[in-house]
Design a protein around this nucleic acid. Structure first.
Length: 520
DNA sequence: TCACTAATAT
DNA sequence: CATATTAGTG
């Protein structure tokens, strides 16, 4: 009974949705990669296919090799709906359709054709996490194996979900489902206690503490800017950020911190402005310290820029920044973006006010990585404040910097990180405080290193990352390298994370990168 | 009920 | 410290 047919009960038996066998069909390799990544993050077993026909073939070969199918609607060889029909008829597996547009008629069509769900791209982690429910539901409906369900580990699922931080909407269905089924186990129980660990899925998921990397923070800031400081709320930000695994709580927490930071900043500013610090040591920052940062901060108002500055002391950093700077700019040039110019700066103030100068209403959609979007992004960049910072120097001497940068970057970075680490980070701290806005940690450095430095926001970043993020697809393309070292610490709750690193590391050739990425 | 956020816990 | 979780409020 349980095991025959379409779904091997094993899946359920194990107690987890983990291991759910998902067949993903999408003609766009990018999406395929993204989805695969995301699904794997959910501890699902993923099989991808870029052709509907191929998918069908696979399904036919082994009817019970999959638990669920996720298919794009638009595919060259076969319409997703067609595939849906076949699957429904032949193997009776739950099928989730997805597409970029959410046109009602289309969604309806999907549903009418038997899709158990219809996802809009970009798909969120949350949505994928919960797909197992369709499998379960189907089984229940078919009346099979309730028994096995009893043993089903709802607790685990809960945890799973919680961990994923989904708590809202989607879960509702889950709950209801659960309720119906399990009179046995009440969610209460599960909720109440479990201090448990993650399911042991292969990838032992860690606790999933969100690390606010530069990227993330940038996204966050961008969202804040778009919304307007006055009107921001975690929810809105979350929506704008469009980061699948992030929860409102995460954002709320960060927002809290951010506000704190802003207020502190504000305070500082007020109190002193004078420090025009005209001086600055340009290059000798020895102290990463405190003072330096502070001054810098004070001076200008641009938080962001300031932040960037935060580099600690070592020349290395400076270089970095410089490098990056150069790099960045280059990128910009390269990139087709329209507003690069604008980009230049937008200070805190603006931040506050909300700058949407650009008016890009569209948030970024990561949907298509390929398309570079930065243009849309309102960014601010850094700049500024040449003065205080040693780093500032970079500003002034871009040329040198850039040149150096390219070659140097790689080296530098690592070094830097090391230093930081070893160093204890006094730096870090300081910096951080100084700039909540960017780079709080080593990690930051490592990861992104620097865009931030730059000013914090590089236009690129967003999109780039995002796209990268979302897809690690680019692994393939990988500009040359793969992560060098970014290891553990930076594990990201979401899938995304690593990518940036590459970029950065690669920095040596941004230009290349760009081109490859964006252009074409 | 939901979202926000200050406070508090980890 | 940074982030998570809680609890009180609207």
């Amino acid at each position: 009974m349980e095991n025959n047919g379409c779904l091997p009960c094993t899946t359920l038996r194990e107690g987890f949705p983990a291991g759910l066998r998902v067949l993903v069909v999408d003609d766009d390799p990018t999406w395929l990669k993204i989805l695969e990544k995301m699904l794997k993050k959910c501890s699902y077993q993923v099989t991808t296919c870029c052709l509907a026909t191929e998918a069908l073939k696979k399904l036919r070969e082994r009817k019970d090799a999959f638990d669920i199918v996720i298919s794009d609607v638009n595919m060259p060889d076969m319409n997703g709906f067609k595939l849906l029909e076949h699957v429904g008829l032949e193997m009776d597996l739950p099928v989730i359709m997805m597409s970029v547009d959410g046109e009602t008629s289309r969604v309806m069509k999907g549903v009418q054709h038997g899709a158990c769900d219809y996802l809009l791209k970009p798909v969120r982690m949350k949505e994928l996490r919960n797909i197992w429910q369709h499998v379960l539901r189907k089984r229940i409906h078919e009346g099979r194996e309730f028994e096995s369900l009893e043993g089903f580990d709802f607790e685990g699922i809960h945890h799973f979900m919680r961990n994923g931080q989904d708590q809202c909407c989607d879960d509702v269905s889950l709950f209801s489902l659960e309720d119906c089924i399990s009179s046995t186990r009440k969610r209460k129980d599960a909720d109440n206690k479990h201090g448990e660990r993650e399911f042991g899925d292969s990838s032992s998921t860690k606790k999933a503490r969100v690390v606010w990397s530069v990227d993330l923070h940038q996204k966050f800031v961008q969202a804040v800017n778009q919304i307007g400081l006055d009107k921001v709320g975690p929810k809105k930000i979350l929506d704008l950020m469009n980061v699948p695994w992030l929860s409102r709580e995460n954002v709320a927490s960060h927002l809290q911190k951010y506000r704190l930071y802003l207020s502190r900043l504000q305070r500082q500013r007020d109190q002193k402005c004078s420090s025009s610090g005209t001086k600055h040591s340009d290059s000798n920052p020895k102290d990463p310290g405190s003072s330096t940062l502070k001054n810098s901060m004070n001076k200008q108002q641009n938080v962001f820029s300031t932040d960037n500055l935060r580099c600690p002391n070592n020349g290395l950093l400076q270089l970095h920044e410089a490098d990056f700077r150069g790099t960045v700019s280059e990128l910009n040039n390269i990139v087709p973006g329209p507003n690069m110019t604008n980009v230049s700066h937008i200070g805190l103030d603006q931040t506050f006010s909300s700058l949407n100068s650009e008016g890009n209403s569209e948030v970024f959609d990561c949907t298509l990585p390929t398309q570079y979007t930065w243009n849309q992004v309102p960014q601010r960049k850094l700049q500024d404040d040449p003065k205080s910072q040693s780093i500032a120097s970079m500003d002034s001497s871009p040329s040198a910097a850039s040149s150096i940068a390219s070659s140097a970057v790689e080296n530098i970075i690592p070094a830097q990180s090391k230093s930081l680490m070893g160093n204890d980070l006094g730096l870090k701290t300081q910096e951080f405080d100084a700039s909540l806005s960017l780079i709080p940690d080593l990690e930051f450095y490592q990861q992104n290193l620097l865009w931030g430095g730059e000013g914090g926001f590089s236009p690129l970043d967003e999109d780039l990352h995002f796209f990268l993020l979302q897809s690690e697809c680019y692994d393939d393309m990988n500009f040359g390298m793969h992560n060098i070292e970014m290891p553990e610490y930076y594990y990201d709750p979401g899938l995304i994370a690593d990518v940036p690193n590459h970029l950065f590391y690669d920095s040596a050739d941004y230009s290349l990168v760009d081109q490859s990425l964006f252009i074409a």
